[in-house]
Design a protein around this nucleic acid. Sequence first.
DNA 1: CCAGTTAAACAACAGTGTGGATTAAGTGGC
DNA 2: GCCACTTAATCCACACTGTTGTTTAACTGG
Lengths: 375, 375
Amino acid sequence: MSTPGSSTSPGDSAVTPASTPPVRPTVPGANLSALRDHNAAAVLTLVRVAGEGGISRVELARQSGLTAQAISKIVQRLVEDGLLAETGRGASTGGKPRTLLTLVPEARWAVGAQLGRDALTVLRADLTGRVVADRRVPIDLAGWGPARVLDLLAEEVGRLLADVPRERVLGVGVASPGPLDQLAGVLHQVTGAPSWDGLPLRDEVAGRLGLPALIEKDSTAGVLSGLGSPNRAFVHLDRGLGAGLVLGGAVQRGARTNAGEFGHQTLDPNGPRCRCGNTGCVEALWAAAPTPQAAAAVLGEAVANLVRLLDLDEVVLGGREVLAAPDVYPAEILRVLAARLPDPAWQPVTVSLAPSGPNAVALGAAGLVLSRLFG
Amino acid sequence: MSTPGSSTSPGDSAVTPASTPPVRPTVPGANLSALRDHNAAAVLTLVRVAGEGGISRVELARQSGLTAQAISKIVQRLVEDGLLAETGRGASTGGKPRTLLTLVPEARWAVGAQLGRDALTVLRADLTGRVVADRRVPIDLAGWGPARVLDLLAEEVGRLLADVPRERVLGVGVASPGPLDQLAGVLHQVTGAPSWDGLPLRDEVAGRLGLPALIEKDSTAGVLSGLGSPNRAFVHLDRGLGAGLVLGGAVQRGARTNAGEFGHQTLDPNGPRCRCGNTGCVEALWAAAPTPQAAAAVLGEAVANLVRLLDLDEVVLGGREVLAAPDVYPAEILRVLAARLPDPAWQPVTVSLAPSGPNAVALGAAGLVLSRLFG
DNA sequence: CCAGTTAAACAACAGTGTGGATTAAGTGGC
DNA sequence: GCCACTTAATCCACACTGTTGTTTAACTGG
């Protein structure tokens, strides 16, 4: 019995092994192999969402819409693969008690990395998305250039994986400032870092590490750092302002895989000039704000636009600027949301800090790799 | 052999027959029946996209990722169902020429309706999405109240379907001003029309006509009025400003099925007061613009924000205000886009009028029904 | 006319989820 | 302590999916 996703099926395998052709376009058709992988991924996701308490086969059947028998077989395969284990029993409701299943955290590992302008973050996450080891080292992205940075990345990742069987490593996800071509795995003109322009980052990383690799815009990666609503945004406040979007349950990258340009929406045509050339962008107003409170209020306006446009019910905040004022941002943004969206129908919008804190983006990059299993 | 979608499968059937329970929540699991329907829908979509020229089985196999044999069987089923027909032969490339397949337009019909504040539009579309009959009658949505309007709607739809076998009618899609609960099929507080608040529109329509019914926000319906990019928006300029979004190939409705609130993003905090209570909303600036040119320029700013945020490559315009100045809007919006997104990477953004003109929203409502077949 | 080529169908098959019957493991009444 | 009852999970036969290998259909070109 094989690991889900490992067998031949049209258009699966988002993770590109180092040796295979870079882009396999997604095809609409699905065969039995794809069906099996899809259902295995669905079951794994349900178990993941259930968390440490576990979930029974009966409940899996109910939530998945599959029959008890199908669940029985799927679970059997996943147990044989070592991904699931029976770790408890539920209370009886008059008959045989349910057997509870949970993920085996150490069954697979995912590596996540964030290429920041002045720091490299690498971490290893287990199957449940928990960070088991992380490291942050200062770099100078623009000054050092790709070779030195990628050597360092390879060295740090190698250290993370020192005592880990390679066959249990799903791959490496690398988050980078945009814009980039996520499908081709190539960076485009990172502002102020011309030596990175056109770099085939994905293949470089895959080649150096001998592991499947994926790249992602930093803000988009952030939205994958944890589970959450099917309609949510990760708002990333670093040097610039970006947003990662999950809509209708799927990550949205847009036509050129550069969705999430959140910082350059005009909020005030008479506002300060922005580095992008226009005036009154959120980013410029935010950067010009005298206090964190004022900055958060500006951001709140932009978030209100976002929530209204996309009908979100969850906003997660991350990035160094948020981490620098963790008490200010969520509260202030919620205040602006309440003022701008007074209708109670909008009320169940949650605004919170990313639980993974400074690891959010790198963890999201690892989550991208995990999504190979979880669909 | 049955029509795709007609057999039992978990979580399929977005169209609710008049007699079945209103909401069947989508489940992640997929069985063989769902697989079959999925592939049938994929094939039908490929044939639809190919258009009048038709498409061969070989090409279907290539584009779908399925084997020639699978395509052969799927096509056979669809031909038996009357949905596809062999309508031509390709040129030989040294061997047996390919047989070309096209949709049989009259195999199924979809009815679309738009409940406007002062007009009711109803139309009948064939399987290819072509309007074969349409009618527009004046109404007073707020003044008349639901009973009178729905009686009229039933009468008009009955007329459209006079000579059509009922079993060939997929259903009725009804577009309405929002907000509404698309899943439950219930309207919410249509501004200025309190008698419609809470109305179970979907079940009312389904009951009166004895046909499956679906409801949709008008701007969201508009985006389904035709084929297009997987990342596109329909910008609807009627009394208010709304947007329908297709992202990652899927219609986006958001957490409460009210995505697309496009008109109330703040563009200028010192701008005019908007009816929503805030100041400087696009909608207010747009309404206060002295000329169509100026109005289009304001809209262009908002569209630039949208395109940048979601990385769209297609924007379709519809609604009476656009139709009133069809030469002004696309050109002016394109001009603003070029100024705001000077990077050539953004250039392949198309801005165009909806080809279906005043029928766009109603046709999109019909398209919603067609998507039962096309997935 | 016939070898070569490409399209499409035929036949046998592997593997998926399904349905009905069976086994496993509890509860609760007596 | 026993036993009827209930619920969970599996066993077994099966229907139906797409796949593989082979055959037939239909056209090109020498």
